[in-house]
Amino acid sequence: MIAALTRLGQSVLDPLARLGRANLFFLRLLGALSFLLQRPGLLVKQLHTVGVLSLPIILVSGLFVGMVLGLQGYANLVDFGATSSLGTVVALSLIRELGPVLTALLYAGRAGSALTAGIGLMKATEQLASMQMMAVDPFQRVLAPRFLAGFIAVPLLTGIFTAVGILGGYLVAVVQLGVDGGAFWAQMQAKVHFFTDVVNGVVFKSLAFGVAANWIALFEGYEAQPTSEGISLATTRTVVSTSLAVLGLDFLLTALMFGVW
């Protein structure tokens, strides 16, 4: 009986303690960011890892998502003779939701998991400890550059994903299905608003997702049990937690930005 109560209490306290550690981790991460002013080269290397190497998956996925949107939108709008608003449909769904959300999910799978595995491996092979023994703070030297690079890369990747997606929609709608190209762009421009849609959707959402995705990925790696099993577990957890966090955050942000007011 007592044991069951203890277990119950533990199952509440453990996640709470973990949340506390995650927040302290985040503060230390922010505190270490200023180090990058002295060593901008570290940032470039990480931008390559999380940004450039994520480009192929972002480009291909964006194109396909846009093409699917074009096809589905056409199939539905053609019944109302409203195919001229296809541009609006494709652009708004990509800019407001699909661009930021799918980019963040793909990022978690491609770059986030790699970040977790990389940090976990550095921990397991005592690279982080040996760095500390050389009087070098891993938060400054290892974690901060990765975090900032991810924070910069996610909005850029989101922009690329969205733009390529709209291009994909254009290819299907205008080039293949024969929707009028002028109407496609004109309707889009008339209905897509710069501040409420592009800034809120592509910029603010992706910034928020970038913080969440990189924070989770680095924290999971830093907290991983230093065994191969622990690292693979942490990698899985990164993808799952990031997906949940991104979708939950997306609902919150959508309600705040586009909700009825």
Partner: peptide, 25 residues
């Protein structure tokens, strides 16, 4: 490596500009 990163940043910013100028109002 630096070149690739530079290209990536330019591409990302170009995409954002495209969204702002060509797609939105």
């Amino acid at each position: 490596l630096e070149l690739a990163v530079g290209l990536f940043v330019v591409l990302g910013l170009a995409a954002l500009f495209l969204l702002a100028l060509k797609v939105s109002d």
